[in-house]
Design a protein around this nucleic acid. Sequence first.
DNA 1: CCCGTCCTGAAAATATCTTTCAGGTATGAG
DNA 2: CTCATACCTGAAAGATATTTTCAGGACGGG
Lengths: 311, 311
Amino acid sequence: MSETVKESSRAPGAGPEAPPAPAALAAKVRTLAPSMTRSMQRVAEAVAGDPAGCAALTVTGLAELTGTSEATVVRTSRLLGYPGYRDLRLALAGLAAHQQSGRAPAVTADIAVDDPIADVVAKLAHDEQQTLADTAAGLDTVQLGAAVAALASARRVEIYGVGASALVGMDLAQKLLRIGLFAHAHSDAHLAVTNAVLLRSGDVAVAITHSGSTGDTIEPLRVAFEHGATTIAITGRPGGPVAQYADHVLTTSTARESELRPAAMSSRTSQLLVVDCLFVGVAQRTYDTAGPALSASYEALAHRHDPRTAR
Amino acid sequence: MSETVKESSRAPGAGPEAPPAPAALAAKVRTLAPSMTRSMQRVAEAVAGDPAGCAALTVTGLAELTGTSEATVVRTSRLLGYPGYRDLRLALAGLAAHQQSGRAPAVTADIAVDDPIADVVAKLAHDEQQTLADTAAGLDTVQLGAAVAALASARRVEIYGVGASALVGMDLAQKLLRIGLFAHAHSDAHLAVTNAVLLRSGDVAVAITHSGSTGDTIEPLRVAFEHGATTIAITGRPGGPVAQYADHVLTTSTARESELRPAAMSSRTSQLLVVDCLFVGVAQRTYDTAGPALSASYEALAHRHDPRTAR
DNA sequence: CCCGTCCTGAAAATATCTTTCAGGTATGAG
DNA sequence: CTCATACCTGAAAGATATTTTCAGGACGGG
């Protein structure tokens, strides 16, 4: 990696490759902000803050407004997934028109220590709804489709994730097991690596990490990758280290976080949506076996419920 | 008027002079068509017929598409009221986005086996958003407040749930542990009961069951209840058997389910919202200790991430 | 058939966007 | 504390896209 890397029109820096992205711009800015340099953040902020205004500006204008250079503006555009500033500008114009028609409510006040409980409920619900919308808008359906295809034909599926992401991994494993796939979720880093060593072509490994840089999760994915397994990463930082070893990267969205609203909350919501999409996608593809399997597992569980009132 | 009139960037030819024109483009094309020359009409037609497609083209591209020249394209843009093609193109992008958003609301349908993956994403996201809204609206804030109070002052918290609800329980346990409470989630029915026997007044037991009639979850809650612990039930059926042994019942909402959209999906979303509300509520009440604890756990985790790219 | 008017597109001129490159700054090692 | 390294940054060169100019030619009227 020592050779000079030119800033060409291909390879948008960090993001694996996002399509022209429709309207999830604010979300994407938040998602990618951590991997941005200071001046790029200024540009991104201006763009997210006033899409309509920025759409009216030329590269030079936006560079002056943000006190940076044209080069930085172009670089930021690339990072956000567009071929260049021209295309970002078009997207901005679209977004502006969209916002104007949509009348965004934008009542996302932060949660305060003395908020009454009813406000907490409303704010959390609103936040998570927002997260879902952002995630859905930002999901690359091509990557998703590819991931589904890989899972549907996998000999076995191994899922890696620690902390909060471990629960998401278990959720995915539970779901896939229900439709007859051989899936297992690991949350112990050591066991995960020893497991990953056994994988080979035809197996699928899934890594779930919000930060994209969780060593304990990346390591087994790397091993799986190097042993020829198809690898999928579900992460909030598509430019993070985890993407290096992922054949398919599924991007989750991040909401603004705060002390009383840890990132784990919205990232989990986002991750679960992605997991659900994977599950439904796989179930569609394997409907012949998945349908009966789902019915069967439902039947099996019915006996575990109190027959007196369980319908 | 006999002197030569240059085609300058001022004086938009025929159109009286319209401002940047919002979205009534098709109408304007019709209105101005009579005063257009043949080749201009071809351009205008293309633009009105496929705004999105034309927005993707450069002047040269559109000229070729319509079999005319760049000059004609620019002239047409002027006639339509824009300073030049660049601005027409931006307006076109906005128009395209606007149109697209208009035909969005048709996502209420059920998920079909042959739905394209993009539809699956949209439908799932929409569903879960709906579930969140329903849950927030249906949550009894009095019960919630009481449950928060009980948790905040609990000596220990034991959480029972099996299957998908087990994951929700673990999520709650993880969160409570982070703010210094002693919480533990159980998913093994036998161990849960043996654990429940040890509870007494001052302890809190939480049962999570969507159906409200899951024997394996109800049993430990009953035992805890009978031993004097404060009991909380998170269930989709507040009238179900589990409510019998619950001091506080928190109701989750359920979306319509179908074969490809198992109830587990929306019930999980709903349960997690309730769990988040409990967590934030408790964190508020115990902010003096919860705040530092959250910061500390955040710090501790920072070291587990690769420092090279995690900014 | 000839003439004037005006449409039309090729090409020059300009504006805008993209890339390159060298200087500067922060960061970690010694 | 100093040095080396990697990386961010913007100025300016280079490439594209847009706008303007200009002359050929079609069309209609005389």
